[in-house]
């Protein structure tokens, strides 16, 4: 196979775009798509100070790398869940990238805040590990922006993440979640930061290829508590469809975005939005779920971040 742009031997075949590209031209092709996504959906303004949520995986590290390369100078936030081995190994990859980019990374240690790793935290509050993890991550990622003056939080969600979530929401007709996914979620006042997903239209395969070509050293292993079994089944099904009908995933997600736009902004679910009396985070009661968690553990902990420059 030859590169469609320069005729040299191709390094990747992109069946959904009916093209094959060499390393150099593929990198340009993918970066252009991300730039276009950032422009079209107005993800980042010139005055913005973006920060990237990094886990050590291929998506977040590639996103951090690419954003800085495209001129969106950004620092990183890493949440240390206190999982033996796994957390240290992923933090190491994050630090490596911070060194490469010469950017700062903030580190929040769950163990410092709650004296337990995420599995222990989940056990105390009798919730699944992934659900406790989600609560803490959402809160801390928002909090670092508020405390340190970042105006946009970027996450590495990719096309396959979005397509599989959408697939699940459609299968079970989860109307309350169906229209919530978007490339951008606007912030609210000074308490909720704007969230963006610049890789919304980039497949996992493309991002992994980018990481390999750029020599980005990421963690392959999955979180040992990952409860993504259902997600993996959806991804598998979608990839099987993709194999026989290339381009299905991107059409599915682009079609969703088009319908979302046509649908317009319907009013929220009617519940009055309030703010946590203690920290100001949006909540539906007096206290947000993170402050509730701190109380449950009886800590007077004030959220702190380690900085690694």
């Amino acid at each position: 196979m030859k590169c469609r742009v320069c005729g040299k031997p191709a390094n990747i075949n992109l069946r959904s775009y009916k093209t094959a590209l060499c390393e150099e031209d593929f990198i340009a092709f993918l970066e252009k798509r991300v730039s276009a996504t950032i422009g079209k959906y107005r993800l980042i303004d010139e005055a913005d100070r973006p920060i990237v949520a990094v886990s050590g995986g291929k998506d977040s590290l590639s996103l951090w790398y690419m954003m800085n390369k495209l001129g969106y100078v950004s620092d990183g936030i890493y949440i240390d869940l206190g999982i033996e081995g796994y957390s240290e190994r992923s933090l190491e990859k994050v630090r490596q990238m911070a060194d490469t980019l010469r950017r700062r990374v903030y580190v929040f240690h769950v163990r410092n805040a709650l004296q337990k790793g995420i599995d222990g935290v989940a056990r105390v509050i009798r919730r699944p590990t992934c659900s406790a993890c989600g609560t803490i991550k959402r809160y801390i990622m928002n909090r670092v922006c508020i405390d340190k003056g970042y105006t946009v939080l970027a996450t590495g969600h990719n096309l396959d993440d979005e397509a599989s979530a959408l697939f699940g929401n459609v299968l079970y007709w989860k109307r309350e979640y169906l229209w919530k996914k978007n490339v951008v979620l606007e912030g609210r006042g000074e308490h909720l930061v704007k969230k963006i997903k610049p890789f919304f239209l980039c497949s996992e395969r493309e991002i992994a290829a980018y990481a390999i070509m750029k020599g980005i050293d990421y963690i392959y292993e999955e979180c040992p508590y990952s409860e993504g079994a259902k997600t993996l089944v959806y991804k598998e099904m979608l990839n099987r469809i993709e194999e026989s009908s290339p381009g299905t995933k991107i059409m599915f997600v682009k079609g969703y975005l088009k319908m979302l736009k046509e649908k317009g902004d319907e009013k929220e679910d009617g519940r009055e939005s309030r703010y946590c009396l203690r920290c100001g985070y949006p909540t539906f009661s007096d206290k947000c779920s993170f402050c509730w968690l701190l109380d449950k553990f009886g800590t007077e902990y004030d959220v702190e971040f380690d900085q690694y420059n």
Partner: peptide
């Protein structure tokens, strides 16, 4: 993805004797 001697290759690439091949799984859990 198929990586031969550190470089990504397309499906029609012939892998030779002595080549070092790595297969990279691109799917990660949710």
């Amino acid at each position: 993805l198929v990586v031969v001697n550190g470089k990504l290759v397309t499906e029609d690439h012939r892998i030779d004797r002595d080549d070092e091949v790595k297969l990279i799984r691109v799917v990660s859990g949710g």
